[in-house]
Amino acid sequence: MALLEIKDLTLRFGGLCAVNALSLEIEDGSIRSLIGPNGAGKTCVFNCLTGFYKPSDGEMLFQGQSLVNKKPHYITFLGMARTFQNLRLFKEMTVLENVMSGMHCRTNAAFFTTVLRTKSQKAEEKHIREVSEECLDFVGILDKKNHMARNLPYGDQRRVEWARALATQPKLLLLDEPAAGLNKDEKSKLIELMHRIRDDRKITIFLIEHDMGLVMKVSEKIFVIDYGVKIAEGTAKEVRDNPKVVEAYLGKEEEEESA
């Protein structure tokens, strides 16, 4: 059974159809990409999956469980974490505190244990800290844990977002344009990081990306959508050779390939 199964997902805003009868499957342990021209509805798919938008129609199954009408925090609890296209860090908090937010849904200290500072509460706080530091170490910025998030360079802020998502201990990680704004060096590190996330942590990855080179390198299978409709799926080569894809990106008349 696939880890994530989307069946006929449709999202309408007024008369506009942002996602139209989209179906796809993500197998456990894979890296999958969703590509498409600007405004094709890619982020809308993510927002539906993570509960930020309510789909107009269709079904989304995560480990066999429906995600329709579930709230974002519950979906995260089920094991699906995301990053945002424009960084959404808690800017006025430290890097470590940012990552600790991910552990919230895996812990449960409430009012009385907190006020009495019981043994279990102390142990839990320690656990939160350790896991968060481990995640920071994994993405390679443990040395910056006490910095204010807003003071980090852009590339490092991205890493904080990944660490934060990893701290929720997901089974599936949704990355919304993870390479946007990164330089060449950072991009190659990102590819390596994604492979490590999948291989060492056994986390499935589903990403949206504009950088074709990166997508082709990292993902075993690619889905292409345009105007909310899936127009192709397959390996990097299959997709690249698909005339519909070329048409969506370059327009109908032009046949020549661009790198």
């Binding site: 974002p72 925090h73 808690f90 505190e97 849904c105």
Partner: peptide, 18 residues
């Protein structure tokens, strides 16, 4: 901390499982 996350960015807090 959960209150602080929500105060800073409600959507991001929700996405983190709060």
């Amino acid at each position: 901390r959960a209150w602080e996350y929500i105060r800073e960015d409600e959507d991001a807090a929700a996405a983190m499982g709060i």
